[in-house]
Design a protein around this nucleic acid. Structure first.
Lengths: 342, 342
DNA sequence: GTGAAAGCGCTAACAC
DNA sequence: GTGTTAGCGCTTTCAC
C-alpha cells in the first residue's frame, strides 16, 4: 500500500480546456470544431484538429450528455451479466450494427440477490442523462413513468407498463410436457421459478394445463419452488427425489434449475435420463455442454434482443411501437430425457 | 408519426432541485442527506428522505460523477458484444459480486468493422468521469497513458502497456496439433487469425513449432489468412480444399473460422470428420451446439474475466498488480476430429 | 444546522 | 468568425 506519489502518475485525460489553451482559441470554438458546427475559419479548424489529435482528446460522454439532449447511446439494464442476459445482449448488439447508436450495458450493484427495485434505480440514474432509451431485462417491479422510451424483456407485469417482449412461455411449457408425456412419463414434477416474474407463472400454467389435457391429476406436492436458481432447485429436488413415490421426470422452470436437479439426482445415485428425465427452459449455452446434454425449451434470446432494439428505435423515432411482441419457443431434444422406466 | 403532444408525456425524471423544492430545503441539504453526510437535523433528514422516496428520486450517475472523483463503477470496453466478450463479461460479473462496484459495459459505435482506435476513443470518453477503472477486451492499438487503472484482456501488444491477461496461446496450439498428430494426420493446414492481434501470431507459432517437433515440413501453402472471421476462413478453405493434395486436417485459429471451414467442406462433399478433421480455438458456446460438435481448444474465458477484475481491484486499491497473468488453455475433444483417412 | 456560491466538462445562445 | 456567458445536475467549501 503506497502513497499516491509512489505510483507512476497517470497522465490526466485532456479536457476541452486543454485543447483550447493549446490551440490558442476559446473553448466554444473547440466545441464547434469538434461537433462540426459551421462558422469556423478553415485555418482555425485545422489548428484545432491538429491539437485534438496530438492530445488524443475525445469529448467526455458524461459532460456532453449532461448538457446535450441526445447522447446516441442506448442503455441495457440488467441485474447482472449471467447467461440469459448475455444472450440477449448479443442479439441486441448484432441488431444495433449500423444504426448509429452505441450500447451501454449497466448492472446495478452486484449482490447475491438483486436488490428490489434495481431497475427503477438504474433507470433513474441513467435516464435523462447518459442514455436516450433503455432496454430493461426481466424487471420485477412496475416501472415508473419514464422520461425516456423503454422496452422491457420478459417483465414481471406482462402487458400494461412499457412495451414488452417475451416468448410464448405457456406454449413452450406445453412443448416440454408433451415431450415427457410422449415418452410415457406419468409422474412429472415441476420446479417452479421466481414468483415475482410472470414467466414463472406462465410456465407453471403450461405444466398444469398439459397435465389436465393428458387427463392426469395435478398433485400440488409435485410442484416445488426453485426460484430459477440452481441452489434452490437442488434443495427442492432433494425433497422431491428422496420420496419413495418419486417422479420419473422433472420439468424445471429454467435450465439452471434443471442443472440443480441433475446434480441432486447424481447425489442420490439416480441416472439421468435412465432413472429420471429432466427438461429445462431457456436453452442457455451450458445446456449443450453439460453431461448429459440438456433437453430444454429454447427461447429465441438473440431474436428477442433484436426485436427489443427495433421496438426501441421506433419509439426513439417518435413512432408508435407495438405494445407487445411474443416470439415462439421451441423444443430442443438432447440427452437428459428418455422413455419412462418400466 | 405524431407530434410530441400525441404521445403520453413521459414524466420527467426528478432532479435534486425538485426534491429540494418539495422538501422546502436547499439543494445542498438534500445532497447531504442523500450522501449521508452529517450536520443535518434529524427532522430535516426525515423530511427529505420522505420526499425522496415519494418522488422516486435517484441521484444521476452522470451529474454526480462529473463532480465527484470516485463513481464506484468499473467500465468494460468492448468493440461489440459477441460470444467472446460475452463470456468474459459473465466471468467479470460473477467476480464483481460483493465488491461494491457496479459494472458498465460499453461498446463504441457498432459497425461491420470496429473502427481503428475504438478502445482509445471509448477510454477517453469514459475515463476521468463515469468509470474508476476499465477492463479493455482485445485492444488492437497501444493504449495511451491512461488517467485511470486499466487491465487489457488478450491485447495486441503482449506485455508493455497496461497489465494484461491472456491464455497460453502457444501451448493451446500445441494441444490442438498434438491431438491431430496423434490421430495420424500428417497434412495439416492452418487458417490463421487477425494479423493485428498477438494471439494470432502465437497460435501460428504453436502450429509451426508442433510441426517441427513432429519432424514434419512446414508448407507455407498450407497456411491461409482467415482473419478470425467465418467468411474469410471459408474463402481460404475453398482454395485449400479444392486442391488435389488437400490436407486431411485443418487447425483453425478460432472457432468461427472452423465453422467456415466445415461449411466449405460440406459444399465440396467432404464429410467432417471422416474425410476432414477440423479443430478450432476459443470454445465459444456454439462450438458445442454445432453439427458436428466442434473439437477445439478452450480458453478459460470466465476465469480470465475474473482475473482481470481482481487485477483491476488491486490497482484501484493502490496496490501493485502483477503485470501479466497467463492462464492455461485446454483441449476439448468433440466430434469434428477423427483418425486420418487411410 | 443550513444555504449561497463555485465549479466539474461541455454545448448553445448570443454578443461582438 | 470568435469569444462571453449561462447552465445541465450535482457535490463541496465556506459563510451565516
Amino acid at each position: 500500500m503506497g502513497t499516491d506519489a509512489d505510483l507512476s502518475a497517470p497522465t490526466a485525460r485532456s479536457t476541452i480546456t486543454d485543447v483550447a489553451r493549446a490551440a490558442g482559441v476559446s473553448v466554444a470554438t473547440v466545441s464547434k470544431v469538434i461537433n462540426g458546427r459551421d462558422g469556423v475559419a478553415p485555418a482555425t479548424f485545422q489548428k484545432v484538429m491538429r491539437v485534438v489529435s496530438e492530445l488524443g482528446y475525445e469529448t467526455s460522454l458524461v459532460a456532453s450528455s449532461l448538457r446535450r439532449r441526445r447522447t446516441g447511446v442506448i442503455g441495457i439494464l440488467v441485474a447482472e451479466f449471467e447467461p440469459y442476459s448475455s444472450e440477449l445482449l448479443k442479439g441486441i448488439s448484432a441488431a444495433a450494427h449500423g444504426t448509429g447508436y452505441e450500447l451501454l450495458a449497466y448492472s446495478g450493484p452486484l449482490a447475491a440477490e438483486p436488490p428490489a427495485g434495481w431497475e427503477r434505480r438504474s433507470l433513474s440514474r441513467l435516464a435523462g442523462t447518459l442514455v436516450d432509451g433503455a432496454i430493461v431485462v426481466t424487471p420485477t417491479v412496475l416501472m415508473p413513468d419514464t422520461s425516456i422510451p423503454v422496452v422491457a424483456i420478459d417483465p414481471h407485469t406482462g402487458r400494461g407498463g412499457p412495451s414488452t417482449i417475451d416468448s410464448d412461455n405457456v406454449a413452450g411449457s406445453h412443448l416440454a410436457m408433451r415431450h415427457l408425456l410422449e415418452l410415457g412419463h406419468r409422474r412429472i414434477a415441476h420446479i417452479s421459478g421466481r414468483g415475482d416474474l410472470e414467466s414463472s407463472h406462465l410456465r407453471e400454467r403450461g405444466y398444469r394445463e398439459a397435465l389436465e389435457q393428458a387427463g392426469l391429476p395435478f398433485d400440488p406436492d409435485l410442484v416445488r419452488d426453485g426460484e430459477y436458481r440452481r441452489q434452490e432447485a437442488a434443495a427442492a429436488a432433494r425433497e422431491l427425489l428422496a420420496r419413495p413415490d418419486r417422479p420419473t421426470a422433472v420439468f424445471a422452470a429454467n435450465d439452471l434449475s434443471a442443472f440443480g436437479v441433475i446434480e441432486v439426482a447424481h447425489e442420490l445415485g439416480l441416472r439421468v435420463p435412465e432413472d429420471l428425465s429432466v427438461i429445462g427452459f431457456d436453452d442457455i449455452p451450458d445446456a449443450s455442454r453439460s453431461t448429459p446434454r440438456l433437453t430444454t425449451v429454447a427461447q429465441p434470446l438473440g431474436e428477442m434482443g433484436a426485436e427489443a432494439l427495433r421496438m426501441l428505435l421506433a419509439l426513439l423515432d417518435g413512432n408508435e411501437a407495438e405494445r407487445h411482441i411474443r416470439l415462439d419457443a421451441s423444443l430442443v431434444v438432447r440427452d437428459s430425457t428418455a422413455p419412462a422406466p418400466a
